[in-house]
Every structure is written in structure tokens, then in C-alpha cells.
């Protein structure tokens, strides 16, 4: 029903679907001509698989071997060539803008997740420490980040910090995402640690462990297990939020999509594809985390 409705609706506005134009933006064959670098004579042609090796002997004694695709070969043996004449062409597969964008989104999210996790862990521990300074610093950080929009933070990181500290857009983007995620992770970790019964810490301390040993061996592993579901949600959000870095001209998936649309006008198709690619990334992450959760549940 919905599909039919959409089809009729797009029919009405005379939209021509061009799904066939989408694949080339993932990967395409790039052909480049191979010119003779100097005036020369073709000494020999040797076929090897799908390519032909063209051996040239230059007027002034240069020698060289060039490889071109068989079906693009334009010269024959003993032919005299001028500099710049094409011998043929080579073709190779290249990643299209959508693949590049997907890859960028993937690694930008991954790097900022890892940094965000570290920031969150440290802040979460500060948040529950006995040191009043650390505690209020972490509260200030969390409130500041949670209380302002990510988009504004990205602009501040790029236009203000980027200019003042002379950092590149990619570092500005990743820092903004990591620091944003860190504030939320900190609260998740704090809640996780506080949900562990006090007796666990007391038992660990009564065995002679100091606070950090007890944290590392007893409290954090249990807290980690409990916080996995909310952490998963947070990192899935981070993948989606990473689309905002396109506003500072980082070529992530969203920006690539926009670029492809400007050259194809296949607006509907590309946005669907972009949405699907985000969905793929997030569902892979969901799967991985639920696998870890199942692994950890053996002690339940």
C-alpha cells in the first residue's frame, strides 16, 4: 500500500527514478590514456593476460616498457610515434564518493567513539570521586556539553578553536564528536558504577585491594556489563550525529550524498541509499554489542 502510494505520488510529480545511476557512485572504472613520453619507435608488443607490454626505443636512446589494456592498444610493432601519442589506456576500479563517504563516516565515528569512551570513563570516575574539585569540574563539563546543541559545538570547535589553535577540520570534527559523546558516556558510567552494590567494593577492600584494584577487577567489569545497552544506544547515536560534521566540509557519507546529488539530481535515490548505509553501520554495531552482551551473560 505505502509503496504503491509513494509510486503514484512520485509519478504525479514526474520524478524519473534512476536507480541504475547509483552503483557507479560506489565504485567505477577509471580509464586513463597512456601517452608516449618521448619520440620513439615501438620495438615489441608482448601480451600478458589482459594487458600488453609496449616496449619503446626513443630517438635519443631512451628505453621504456609501458603496459596498456589489450583492447585499447592503438599502436603496432615498428610504428614511429611522436611524444604524446597515445599507446592505449589502462583502466582500474576506483572507490566512488559514496564508498569514500561511508569509509570516512565509519572511521570518524570509530575514532570519536574510542576517545569519547575514554573521556567518559575518566569523567565518570571523577564524577563519583571524593575530590570536590574533580567532582565539580566533571559536573560543569557534563552540563555544558549536554546543554548546548552538537551543531553549535561543532561550529565552535571549527571556527573558534580551529582558528585559534590552528587545528584541521577533521581534528575539530572528531574532537567535537568525542567530547560530546564523552559527556553522555560519563553519566552512563557513573550510573553503572553506582548500581553495583556497596558490598562489592567492601568485599574487595576487605581482601586488601586498594581502590583502583577494586575498580579495575571488581566494579568496572560489572558496571560495564550493566551499561552495555545504554552505551550501545549512545554509540549508535554518535554514528548518526557524525552526519553533522558535514557542515564543516568533512566529506562524510552525508556530504558525499549531497555532492552526488548535485551532479545527478537523483535526490530521492541517493538519500534513500545514504539512509540505508547509515542503517547498515548502526545495525552492525547493534549486532556486535548484543553478541558481547550474550557472551557476558554466562555469569547470570
Amino acid at each position: 500500500m505505502m509503496g504503491a502510494g509513494l509510486w503514484i505520488a512520485t509519478k504525479k510529480i514526474d520524478y524519473t527514478w534512476r536507480w541504475n545511476r547509483v552503483p557507479q557512485y560506489f565504485a567505477y572504472v577509471d580509464e586513463s590514456n597512456v601517452p608516449a613520453p618521448y619520440d620513439a619507435r615501438v620495438v615489441s608488443l608482448t601480451r600478458a593476460g589482459g594487458t600488453t607490454k609496449v616496449k619503446l626505443a626513443g630517438e635519443s636512446g631512451e628505453e621504456g616498457v609501458f603496459e596498456v589494456d589489450n583492447d585499447s592498444l592503438r599502436v603496432s610493432e615498428n610504428e614511429d610515434l611522436f611524444q604524446g601519442d597515445y599507446l592505449g589506456s589502462t583502466s582500474e576500479w576506483r572507490a566512488g564518493p559514496l564508498s569514500v563517504g561511508l569509509w570516512n563516516t565509519l572511521w570518524i565515528s570509530a575514532v570519536s567513539s574510542v576517545i569519547g569512551m575514554i573521556i567518559g570513563l575518566v569523567t565518570g570516575l571523577c564524577r563519583i570521586s571524593n575530590n570536590a574539585t574533580l567532582r565539580s569540574l566533571s559536573v560543569a563539563y557534563i552540563e555544558l556539553i549536554r546543554g548546548t546543541p552538537l551543531l553549535v559545538q561543532i561550529f565552535i570547535f571549527y571556527f573558534f578553536l580551529g582558528t585559534v589553535l590552528d587545528i584541521s577540520r577533521i581534528i575539530a570534527g572528531i574532537s567535537a564528536l568525542a567530547i560530546f559523546a564523552g559527556a553522555y558516556v560519563a553519566e552512563i558510567i557513573r550510573a553503572g558504577i553506582q548500581s553495583i552494590p556497596k558490598g562489592q567494593m567492601e568485599a574487595a577492600r576487605s581482601l586488601g585491594m586498594n581502590v583502583s584494584q577494586a575498580m579495575i577487577h571488581i566494579i568496572l567489569p560489572q558496571a560495564f556489563k550493566r551499561t552495555l545497552p545504554p552505551l550501545a544506544g549512545q554509540f549508535i547515536s554518535l554514528i548518526k550525529d557524525s552526519s553533522l560534521v558535514s557542515v564543516i566540509a568533512i566529506t562524510d557519507l552525508t556530504k558525499s550524498g549531497r555532492e552526488v546529488i548535485t551532479s545527478t539530481f537523483a535526490t530521492f535515490e541517493i538519500w534513500f541509499v545514504v539512509a540505508f548505509l547509515y542503517l547498515m553501520l548502526t545495525s552492525v554495531l547493534s549486532q556486535v554489542i548484543s553478541w558481547v552482551e550474550r557472551r557476558l551473560s554466562i555469569s547470570d
Binding site: 552494590p197 558490598g199 574487595a204 577492600r205 576487605s206 586488601g208 557476558l296 555469569s299
Partner: peptide, 17 residues
């Protein structure tokens, strides 16, 4: 503390081990 063992009412075993 390492010289003083303690047993609790609620056992407090480490559930993940």
C-alpha cells in the same frame, strides 16, 4: 586489611567471576 579476613552477611561474592 590483607591480614584481616572478613565474611559478610550478604556473602558479597564477585558475581562475574
Amino acid at each position: 586489611r590483607r591480614e584481616v579476613g572478613m565474611v559478610f552477611q550478604q556473602f558479597n561474592l564477585f558475581p562475574h567471576k
